Amino acid sequence: MSDGIRCMLLRGGSSKGAYFLAADLPAGPAERNELLLRVMGSPDERQIDGLGGGHPLTSKVAVVAPSADPEADVDYLFLQVVPDRAIVTAAQTCGNLLAGVGPFAIERGLVPAAGDPTTVRIRIVNPAVSLVEARVRTPGGRVRYDGDTVMAGTPFPAAPIDLAFPGGPDPAFPTGARTDQLAGLTVTCVDAGMPVVLLRAADLGLDGTEDPADLEARTELRATLEAVRLAAGPAMGLGDVRDTTVPKLSIVSPPRHGGTVTTRTFIPHRVHAAIGVLGAVSVAVAVRTPGTVAPYAGDPVVRVEHPSGTFDVGVELEPDGAATRVRRSTVVRTARKIFDGLVWPRSGRATG
Rank of each mutant, 00 (worst) to 15 (best):
Q92M: 14
A164R: 14
R144D: 13
T260R: 08
V301F: 13
L238E: 07
L110M: 03
A23W: 05
E220T: 05
G276A: 05
L215T: 05
T186K: 02
V228A: 02
G54K: 11
P171N: 01
V63A: 07
Y145F: 11
C7H: 07
M236K: 04
L9D: 08
P195C: 12
T179D: 01
G309T: 02
P268Y: 13
D44K: 03
A350P: 03
G54L: 12
L36N: 02
C94T: 12
A164P: 10
G4C: 14
A231F: 09
I5M: 15
A213R: 11
I87D: 09
V287Y: 07
A113S: 03
D116A: 03
A177C: 04
P174K: 10
G237K: 05
R222N: 05
V196F: 14
A114V: 04
R108N: 05
S347Q: 14
G102I: 10
P166V: 10
G41I: 00
V101N: 15
S42Y: 02
T188H: 12
P268S: 15
L206T: 10
L278D: 08
G41Y: 00
F311T: 06
T186H: 00
T244M: 05
A231V: 08
S282C: 01
P166S: 10
G321I: 07
P195A: 11
P26V: 08
T224G: 04
A128M: 10
L185A: 00
R11M: 05
K337W: 04
G314Q: 09
H272L: 15
T154D: 07
R142G: 07
K16M: 11
G41L: 00
V315C: 03
V332M: 10
L206G: 08
G184I: 01
E133G: 13
L342S: 09
R256Y: 09
Q181M: 00
V313C: 05
N96M: 15
D214I: 11
S15R: 09
G352S: 13
V63E: 09
R349A: 07
F20M: 12
T351C: 01
